[in-house]
Design a binder for these strands. Structure first.
Lengths: 147, 147
DNA sequence: ATTGACAAGTATGATATCAAACCAATATAG
DNA sequence: CTATATTGGTTTGATATCATACTTGTCAAT
């Protein structure tokens, strides 16, 4: 019997994620990884300071994972951390100027891959696929919450 | 400026992969992971013995990654390994009966998630998304080869 | 107020993954 | 044939990720 379509979808998605991540990380400067880049990007797009928990929720990883990624970004000087004045358990994380530049360089570096991809696949196909992916993500997110 | 559509696609795919993997691994028996399951599944679907390199190519991971996954499957007794009689560098890996049963149990365990998913998203939408994903995967695979 | 539940962050241990370096065996060139 | 290049597999070292357990601080209920 053939694999169910849902299985094949998840299978393709797993491989795409892996190949894409590897491709991007080969071009990014300062040994930036994709997760690190995503955090920097989040700061640039939304501005201001954020707690590790808020970042973890926004990016859909556990707080333990966020701790780990932030430690590396701190070591590279791309983010800074100060104690939260109103909550003794918490911290406020911000991007630094160096972090901003690194993110700019990374954008340049992967931009070329993204253009190639749009050219090869067709922006129209991508536009039509996006809602499907968003729906699938929402479903999985909701399944996770249900535990 | 908004993120390019290719970026958003890759972003969603990364999150879907992560959420899906976690969801599946929570239900699978014997501490099976998704990569381990994929290897067992490959053996059941295609039968016979395979070299680690052939498996790595089929599943699109590096040979180092395959070494690691096979070591864990060997430790669980789900695959067996014998030296290749014709090539002193190589091995022949096969699935064991225990491995076959474990794979059967895993199929049952994740089947329920896959049905839920098909129900929530709609099999028709999945059918139409699949060619897009296959095309994207092929593109990335070809980019990788170009290095 | 004190106690008990909850929340933020970190640490630990397991797996996956890649790149790079390595070893051993095979294949190719000359 | 011998020397070189290639190929199969493993090892090492780095990062990401989750689950679980722990610490510390906050909040709520009595």
């Amino acid at each position: 019997m053939p694999d169910p379509v849902a299985f094949r979808i998840m299978n393709e998605i797993g491989i795409i994620d892996q190949l894409g991540t590897t491709l991007f990380e080969r071009s990014m400067p300062h040994g930036l990884t994709v997760p690190q880049f995503i955090v920097l990007n989040h700061f640039v797009r939304l501005g201001g300071a954020r707690t590790p928990m808020a970042l973890a929720d926004a990016i859909q990883v556990t707080k333990a994972t966020m701790t780990s990624t932030l430690q590396r970004l701190l070591a590279k000087g791309f983010v800074s951390s100060t104690p939260d004045p109103t909550d003794g358990r918490s911290k406020r994380i911000s991007i630094t100027d160096t972090g901003r530049s690194a993110r700019e360089e990374a954008i340049q570096a992967i931009g070329h891959h993204l253009s190639d991809m749009e050219l090869a696949i067709g922006a129209a196909d991508m536009d039509s696929a996006l809602p499907f992916l968003i729906k699938l993500r929402a479903f999985l997110d909701q399944q996770r919450a249900k535990s």
